[in-house]
Every structure is written in C-alpha cells, then in structure tokens.
Nucleic acid binder design. Sequence first.
DNA 1: CTCGGCATCCTAT
DNA 2: CTAACGATAGGATGCCGAG
Length: 399
Amino acid sequence: MGERLIFHVDVNSAFLSWEAVDRLSKGDTLDLRTVPSCVGGDPDKRTSIVSTKSIPAKKYGIVTGEPVATALRKCPELIVVKPNFHLYQKMSHAFKSILNEYTPLMQSFSIDEVFMDMSGMELLHPDPIKLAHEMKDKIRDELGFTVNVGVANNKLCAKMASDFEKPDKVHTLFPDEIKDKMWPLPVGELFGCGQSTAKKLQEMHIKTIGDLALADERFLLSVFGQKTADYLHYAANGIDDSPVVNEEREAKSYSVENTTQDDVTDFDTVNHLLLAEADVVASRLRADEVKAFTITVIYRTSDMKRHSHGRKIENSTDITSEIYDIAVDLMKECWKGEPLRLIGLSASDIDRDGFQQMSLFGEEEKEKQKKLDKALDSIRNKYGNNSVMRAGIGVFRND
DNA sequence: CTCGGCATCCTAT
DNA sequence: CTAACGATAGGATGCCGAG
C-alpha cells in the first residue's frame, strides 16, 4: 500500500463556539467568543471547573480544568455558561455529516474531533490543502463555527498539525516538515505524552520532541515500559501506522462517579449513592443488551487519592440490585471510614452472549424481568422513592 | 514460568 | 499560604498467587 492522506478536523473551542452559535441564532447580540467566557459548572459548587474557554478568556491566564472560582478571580467579568450536551450532540452531528460527504472512511475521535482517510482521491481532489480549506470553510459558512484541519500522511501527524495555530486554519505535517514543525516543540505537546511522562523525560534532559526522536531507545526502556518506550520513539519521529477505522467500538466498561458537595463519612449516604449509581450502570448495560462480569467501586478520599476495589463474579449481571449488593459488599471490604469526596461504580469484563442465550429461553427471560422489577421495587420501598434517582451532583453529567 | 485478576497509573477529551 | 478540581473511558504496568 502506498502513502496515505489523512485529515484531522478539530472544532475550535468546541463547547464555547457551539454555545455562541446557539445564542446568536436565538437573537442574542453578544458573541461569547469575543469576550472572556467559558463553559463550566456552577461557581458556587466546589466541584465546578472550566471546560472550554474563549480566546479572550485565555488572555487572562484562564486554563482548561481549573476551578471556576479561581478563573473568576483572574477575570471577574468572566461569563460562565452551563454545559448543554444536547446542543453539543446536535452540533457534533451536523459538522460530521458535512465531513462525511467528502469520504466514507471517517473516525469520530471525540465529540468534536474527526479523522478522515482521504487516500486515493488525487483524481477527484488533486490539491489536498485546497480541499481542506474547502471543508473548513463550508463548515464555517453553513454552521457558523470554525475548525482547524491537520493534513498529513498518518493520524498522529494530522492530529499534531491540527493543533498548530488556531482558529480557522489548515496546517500540514508531512515527513519533510517534521524536523521544522514538530521537533522544536516541548515533549509535553506530543500526543500521548502527558504530565507524568513529560516530567520523567525532562529529568532525562529530553526537552523537545526532537530530543525524544533522537534519544537512545534503550535509555527510554530504562524508565518506561516496552509499549510506552516504543510509542514515544515512533511518535516523536512522526511514525504511526494506525488505521482510520469507522466502526464505533463496543464499550469495554460502563462507569459512573459522583463528587459530593460535602465529604461523606457514613455508610448510609455511601449506600444511597451506590444504589443510584448501580441503577445508572445497570440500565446502561440493559440498554446495550450486555452484562458485566466485574464490578468495581471507586472512591476518592478528601486528600484527593483514588482507591478502587473490584471483584469478578460467576454469572454476569445487568441487574441493579445485584450490582448494588456487590458494591456495598466491596465497599465494606475496603473502606475504613475516611472522609470521601467521590464515590463511583464501574462494570467491566463485558459479556455480550448473555442476551443471545436468553432469547433461546423466552420464558426464562420474562421470569427474570419480573424478578428484576420486583427487586427494584423492594429497594425503592426500602429507601423511599427518591433513592432510585441519579445523584444530582457534578457538572458534566449527561442529562 | 505464565496467566488471570487486581490495583494503580497515565492519558485523552 | 497553598492547593484547590469533573466524568468517563481505554490502555499500560506491576504485583501476586495458582497451576
């Protein structure tokens, strides 16, 4: 196979742009993108953080992930907008639909990012850069928000390129440009090189992506595992063979976690939360017609440390009460009563055969459903009707 | 020694 | 004064005990 042509399309300040477009379309005269603003949680809650910020907000030193309260200290006029995931889904679908007109081989990388395999389109589109401009302009003109497009021979380089100067830009990162455009960047800007890896590399006097590209692989192996060392070496050299795949992968786990308004120290509150969470996880499993073999509880103590404790069970389950019972058990086994700020529940080791088997036994299935309903009812009765409700805490819960 | 299970770490949006 | 701070998911890694 010859050389590929890959695009990475990234919406500029996605959530904020989408809020801005939505408000303008409703007759608002203020464009949020032109003033210090961000999408974030309720500033009065301790858990609220900045999700996406406008470019003017960035100029005040406001960064993604910081508490809204500190952002407001940096810029008291900051406009904080609550997230609206319905809107984002709609906008996401709209821009992906436009891109889909250009190629069937597309991979949704996140709500606002797409990889496109444009290989073999030389006859239809002889100039890839012109094509990239066309796509980005079409999105801007039809939908009202801007994107960056990265053009390269693989996904990694396309992704790195789309991250260059913003907004509303097309950048290329072809093999002969890697030295000039990518190697001078700090290692931490390499996709896949996060805070921890960057820090270790700094300590090894590997400061830029170029330093990393030229580093001895055995040196890397002395600090990182085989896969990480390998990845770092190839990525820094702009090498990536991973294909653009359009099937969305099946979930490998289903999890919920809730950060509480105040630290929790009693089992009663913990159990209520676990029940609400078991209900969320179980119904998501049922919605996808799968079951889970492993249930894990997660908690974060007030010192911000995360802990987890899980167990593999004999028969996979999608039943709220079963998951709840296991979760309570697990929590009893590991939690010594330290104040908790977060409690979560995860179902993994997904079983995709359970439902098929059940449909062979129609009667049994009905029987099971009845039991399930009964179990849920008994729990509801035990704790009152409000207990089987999602915990209403946190900023980014989907509806 | 290898493998499954588990806890934790790391990274991403 | 400092650190403070979400939800969700996938993969890597290291340890431990069983076979």
